[in-house]
Design a binder for these strands. Structure first.
Length: 675
DNA sequence: TTAGGGTTAG
């Protein structure tokens, strides 16, 4: 065998000729070498020519065909194999598993038992993997009895595969028990247990396991790097990658895939290009995972033309590469292009559908998101948690309560209502649609809550006028959960204080933001404070506050102050503030809209008209107002300029009719008319 | 001659 190492396949042909009639051991070695080179024709040819064969020759050929995905030929040789020993049975079982035929592997195992061939540790390892891969956990557990009966419960690889199986079922304690009772552990056992902590959501503990592993290999490093990437810690993943290289380990394809994916989330275009150059240099660019990660990397960095080049290259096109391209177009707001790709796809999976739904939602084309869901249901594809959380987000954005309730029903049917993402999306949808009671119900029934669930509920209460309740919930969170307050939560808290007149409490929260919670106040927090002080009539403090800000205040902060001035009739300050707003309005079209709103609420209709004229002159109508109504599952939008609705004429006809029927026209109505 | 842990898309 050593003689063959480093040689090419055609050299082996020469060796066969030179050593014709050489003994069995050399022939068997040559079959193994041909398989390694992927030259199955050579392996078969030699096998057929061999004057004598033993069990090793047969098994080498059987597993060779399996390794190249040629399952039927492998089985053909197995059936003709006169030496059907445990090794050749096991070779077929593991070959079937490798080729994704898990159920067939299980059936083959049962056949083996019927033939009276006793399984060994490798057989058990392979068969447990078959159960894990097919999700047949009960079958897997049923093998456990046999494992103990045959005395393999302490075998390293059997235990390792048992840990993986029990983790997939969610039997974390059982996995830990298997690990603890192991007589010997290796890098595989430690890597499997590392995954257990990831499964429990404790990445810190997983890292500790990694650091304390007595034995590490490239796969353990890859596992930890991959977990950091998947859990949203790309910087940590890259740090660990650097350490891995420093420790003298060579990164393999899976490790590079994770690293490229981490760079994609950081939008690190140049670093990614460097890695791309490196993978070309070491010859793994065309690996399906590497190619797929690079394609997705370019799309996420907004370099769609590079992504397209990768797609059109020799890379094997699969559903993942199609999904990456679609994702790239949606990220860049090119929804028509994304839809065209989606329609052209040869095979779609749930992720393809979800990508389109998320794309439409992110690009504010909510109706289209619902259309895709409808089409998805018609196609027979079953939505998952991710689908629901995206569509519910679309419902929340347009406050579509009916549709949201309908989706809630569907979630319950499918058993998703307790999922953390679906639950959080439901809380948000109900809160944004004004149904706080339902929002609270969903929140209270959620078995697990994360930072986002708490944030959404606290915000929902604050924004719907339940300020006190919002503050109580925030305090409850601080007392009972490990979740730390975040930026968004604190702005909701300040908003709640402002709307319930709890000025001093609000000031205390604001002061403790940086000290206690380590969060630097942003523009929105300052705006809340100005609003709070202005509402309470503490106008000088509000003005002082706005002037003491370390950065440019938000336009809304000035608006809040002006509104306070109007309520408490401080004309001098109102003039100063209006002047400031006017200055800002010159630079920003949003300023015009705000100022016209302020004048309208003060009844200064001439000023409003002047500003509108100015807006038209500057063509700054991008931020025009919009309102909508939902009727029979369809959302009708109306913009501040007429004629945007397909049935405008009919609607205005009815409106005129109603006007003529109205008995009393109040002052505001006349003003609107004159305006 | 057979095995176990890690890899791209939402």
């Amino acid at each position: 065998m050593m003689y063959l190492n480093g040689r090419k396949s055609h050299e082996a042909d020469q060796i066969v000729k030179d050593f014709h009639g050489f003994d069995l051991v050399v022939h068997n070695c040559l079959i193994g070498a041909y398989v390694k080179w992927g030259n199955l024709a050579g392996a078969r040819c030699l096998f057929e020519q061999m004057p004598e064969r033993n069990e090793i020759s047969w098994t080498a050929l059987i597993s060779g065909f399996m390794k190249c995905g040629r399952v039927e030929e492998s089985m053909w040789y197995f059936e003709r194999n006169p030496f059907q020993n445990v090794v050749s049975w096991t070779a077929v079982i593991s070959g079937l598993v490798q080729n994704g035929f898990n159920i067939e592997a299980w059936k083959f195992f049962v056949k083996q038992l019927e033939h009276g061939v006793k399984p060994n540790d490798v057989t058990f390892t392979s068969v447990i993997r078959a159960c894990t891969g097919s999700g047949e956990f009960r079958l897997g557990m049923s093998v456990l009895g046999l494992i103990i009966k045959e005395g393999f419960e302490h075998h390293l690889s059997v235990c390792n595969s048992m840990i993986t199986l029990t983790l997939r079922i969610g039997e974390i304690n059982l996995a830990r028990r298997v690990f603890d009772q192991m007589v010997k552990r290796d890098a595989v056992s430690w890597t499997a247990i590392l995954d257990m902590y990831v499964e429990m959501g404790d990445l810190g503990e997983a890292r500790r396991v990694f650091d304390e592993m007595p034995e590490r290999n490239e796969i353990s490093w890859s596992a930890m790097i991959a977990r950091y990437t998947q859990s949203g810690y790309p910087e940590e993943a890259l740090n660990l990658f650097c350490q891995m290289v420093q420790h003298g380990f060579n990164a393999n394809t899976s490790c590079f895939s994770s690293v490229i994916s981490a760079l994609a989330s950081l939008n690190a275009f140049r670093a990614g290009m460097n890695i791309h150059a490196h993978v070309i240099k070491i010859g793994i660019e065309e690996d399906v995972f590497i190619g797929g990660s690079l394609l997705s990397f370019y799309c996420k960095c907004g370099k769609l033309e590079y992504g397209r080049l990768m797609f059109d290259s020799n890379l094997e096109k699969n559903v993942v590469s199609w999904n990456s391209m679609i994702g790239g177009y949606t990220l860049n707001g090119q929804m028509e292009e994304a839809k065209a790709w989606f329609d052209d796809m040869p095979v779609r999976n749930i992720i393809s559908w979800n990508t389109m739904i998320v794309g439409y939602t992110e690009n504010k084309q909510f109706d289209k998101a619902f259309e895709v869901l409808h089409e998805m249901l018609l196609s027979g594809e079953v939505p998952n948690q991710s689908t629901f959380s995206s569509v519910l987000c679309a419902c929340a954005s347009i406050a579509s309560l009916d549709r949201g309730k309908n989706l809630h029903g569907k979630c319950m049917k499918l058993g998703f209502q307790y999922d953390i993402f679906v639950g959080t999306a439901l809380i948000d949808m109900y809160a944004k649609s004004g149904d706080v009671e339902s929002s609270k119900q969903v929140f209270n029934r959620m078995p697990k809550k994360n930072e986002i669930s708490w944030t959404v509920m606290i915000q929902g209460l604050a924004e719907n006028g339940f300020a006190e309740e919002s503050l109580t919930l925030f305090e409850e969170m601080e007392r009972t959960s490990p979740v730390a307050p975040n930026e968004l939560m604190l702005s909701s808290i300040l908003f709640a204080c402002s709307h319930s007149g709890l000025i001093d409490k609000g000031l205390r929260y604001f002061d403790s933001m940086e000290e206690v919670y380590g969060i630097k106040p942003k523009g929105r927090h300052y705006t809340c404070m100005v609003d709070m002080l202005s509402r309470a009539g503490r106008l000088s403090e509000a003005e002082k506050f706005i002037k003491s800000m370390p950065f440019q205040p938000e336009i809304n902060a000035w608006k809040a102050l002006l509104s306070g001035c109007t309520i408490y009739k401080n004309e001098k300050m109102a003039e100063r503030t209006a002047k400031k707003l006017w200055e800002l309005a010159q630079k920003n079209s949003a300023g015009y809209v705000l100022l016209s709103g302020v004048y309208a609420s003060a009844g200064r209709w001439t000023d409003v008209r002047n500003i509108r004229k100015l807006m038209r002159l500057k063509e700054s109508q991008k931020s025009r107002g919009c309102s909508w109504i939902e009727l029979k599952n369809h959302v009708h939008s109306f913009y501040s300029e007429d004629g945007t609705h397909s049935q405008s004429d009919e609607i205005y006809e009815i409106l005129d009719l109603l006007r003529s029927e109205m008995p009393v026209r109040n002052k505001v109505y006349s003003q609107v008319q004159s305006f």
